[in-house]
Nucleic acid binder design. Structure first.
Lengths: 182, 182
DNA sequence: ATTATATATATCATTCTGATATATATACGC
DNA sequence: GCGTATATATATCAGAATGATATATATAAT
């Protein structure tokens, strides 16, 4: 997905600064996508230059100005147009498409070159990590303001449910079949 | 995973050319990782310069020479050292780590900006695509020579089983819950 | 006969990340 | 009270990787 479309999409949930957009990528979204500051800030500047977003600077005493961006009508149109024209190309991507980069699976692929005790530790920690991830996805308590807008989206509930189901399946499989790696 | 470690790992399965390494990334591995020609060829040249691989040129009438690389003892050592020292950093990556880039999930996130009929078509095609993927992962018939070495690895059976289980879970979830997106 | 696909290596502009720079505020332990 | 760590906030850039393109031929399909 183009970085412009993605930033506009997140701004469609409400006005935000570049820093806050980055924070959204560090929340639940982090498991599916991320953009770096080096991408977010230039993208917002370009979107502003082309009037897809407007910007209000909130001067803060001796911190850098907080630049809060708001999506414009023109920006909403661009976002919708881009989503529509690229929708079909996302069908084959991610979560069993062409974009998963699983270093963990690569490690498994070459696991025979590692000492058994190392692989045992790695698999144990992987299980712990996945359990922790699962808890995060199922967590329904309060979240910081920036992330709240996302939680209320129907699509986010759908994605969280799917992610939870996938992690549970992965955990069960790992626990039942890890013996087969030796 | 460093490109050097990865190329060495694939060469540990048997001597191969850069073109054939790329082919392995287009097989079942494509769902988990990939490297481009622009990465593979320079990496192989560097590995050769540092004696981690040796190279035999097979001249072919009027095609470019086929350069078949073989991993050296020094190369095997580097690969094992790298795997060992980086193993712990792969625990949190991929398949619910920080490296999944799912454009499909992003599309779902913004699905409310798309016409219902578009989303319907997209979800239908996604289901078809996943069914096709599932068949590919379960397929146990003959494969081209390059890929055969991988099929015989225990770890590959493990990964294929895990991938199949994950896709099945994803399919079931999508079919049961797609109504909740509207 | 033409088009598409496969073999085979190489290069490079564009893109993206991860790190770093800059500057301040606040919370925490001791 | 003092140092340390973390959080806020934007910006830039070296280095790395991709995707596209160039080059050249063989073969299969239409």
């Amino acid at each position: 997905m183009q970085k412009e479309t993605l930033c506009l999409g997140l701004l469609s949930l409400g006005p935000r600064s570049g820093y806050e957009i980055k924070q959204m990528f560090e929340g639940p979204l982090s498991d599916f996508y991320s953009l770096s500051f080096g991408t977010i800030y230039p993208t917002l500047n370009n979107l502003q230059a082309d009037k897809y977003v407007s910007c209000k600077q909130h001067s803060q005493s001796k911190k850098p100005d907080k630049k809060v961006y708001t999506i414009t009508k023109k920006g909403m149109e661009l976002m919708k147009d881009n989503l529509l024209s690229d929708a079909s190309s996302y069908i084959r991507s991610g979560n069993f498409g062409d974009q998963i980069k699983s270093e963990f699976f690569l490690l498994l692929l070459f696991s025979k070159y590692l000492p058994k005790e190392t692989m045992n530790t790695v698999l144990n920690e992987r299980v712990l990590y996945l359990r922790q991830k699962l808890e995060q996805f199922k967590y329904d308590g309060p979240v910081p303001g920036n992330l709240d807008a996302m939680r209320n989206e129907k699509s986010v509930s759908f994605i969280r449910g799917l992610a939870s189901a996938l992690i549970e399946t992965g955990l069960n499989y790992m626990e039942k079949n890890r013996g087969k790696l030796n």
